[in-house]
Amino acid sequence: MKLNMITLAIIAVFAVLFFHQASGMPWTPSHIVGVAIAAPAVLLLILARLQLGRAFSVRAKASTLVTSGLYSRIRNPIYVFGSLFFVGIIIWTNRPWLLVGFVVLIPMQVYRSRKEAEVLETKFGDEYREYKQKTWF
């Protein structure tokens, strides 16, 4: 439970810092687009994290198969919305060189999602395979 609260607090702190910094900048087109992507992404990231609850872990483990809420449509909403948040930050800061980080992030998330899928499939079998067919990434 302690790790769950720490990760949620880290996400919340980053969100607050981002919005505080964004509020003091001029509203250029790149800032508007960046905030328009990052704001809903971070809110959905926090929602996904809350919906995952105690099933969250840093290492892949299969304690519970979460299939409700955002997880009813997307198997890995934390990765999806975390990536969108990062894209929003790149656009907002108008620093295309940050795409290097994004290019590194995506393969890492694909790798992690595959590892998690293996663990979940081993534990939940057909139930997970059926869930996987109904959801995206």
Rank of each mutant, 00 (worst) to 15 (best):
V66M: 11
V66Y: 04
V66S: 07
T67W: 08
T67P: 11
S68H: 02
G69I: 10
G69L: 13
L70W: 13
L70D: 03
Y71N: 10
Y71E: 12
Y71Q: 12
Y71K: 07
S72R: 14
R73E: 09
R73H: 03
I74D: 12
I74A: 08
I74H: 06
R75M: 09
R75K: 14
N76V: 04
N76Q: 07
N76L: 04
N76D: 07
P77S: 00
P77N: 00
I78A: 10
I78L: 15
Y79R: 05
Y79C: 03
Y79L: 03
Y79W: 08
V80G: 00
V80S: 01
F81K: 00
F81R: 02
F81S: 02
G82P: 14
S83M: 10
L84N: 03
L84I: 07
L84D: 03
F85R: 09
F86W: 02
F86H: 01
F86Y: 12
F86Q: 03
V87A: 09
V87H: 05
G88H: 07
G88K: 01
I89P: 06
I89H: 09
I90G: 04
W92Y: 15
W92T: 10
W92V: 10
W92M: 12
W92I: 07
T93W: 13
N94C: 04
R95G: 01
R95F: 05
P96F: 00
W97R: 08
W97V: 10
L98D: 06
L98E: 01
L99P: 04
F102E: 15
V103F: 14
V104I: 15
V104K: 02
V104L: 13
V104A: 13
V104G: 03
L105R: 01
L105G: 07
I106A: 01
I106D: 12
P107W: 05
P107K: 00
P107L: 00
M108G: 13
M108S: 09
Q109N: 15
V110M: 15
V110A: 11
V110H: 10
V110T: 05
V110F: 14
Y111W: 15
R112P: 08
R112C: 06
S113C: 05
R114W: 09
R114C: 04
K115L: 13
K115Q: 14
E116V: 07
E116M: 03
E116T: 01
E116Q: 07
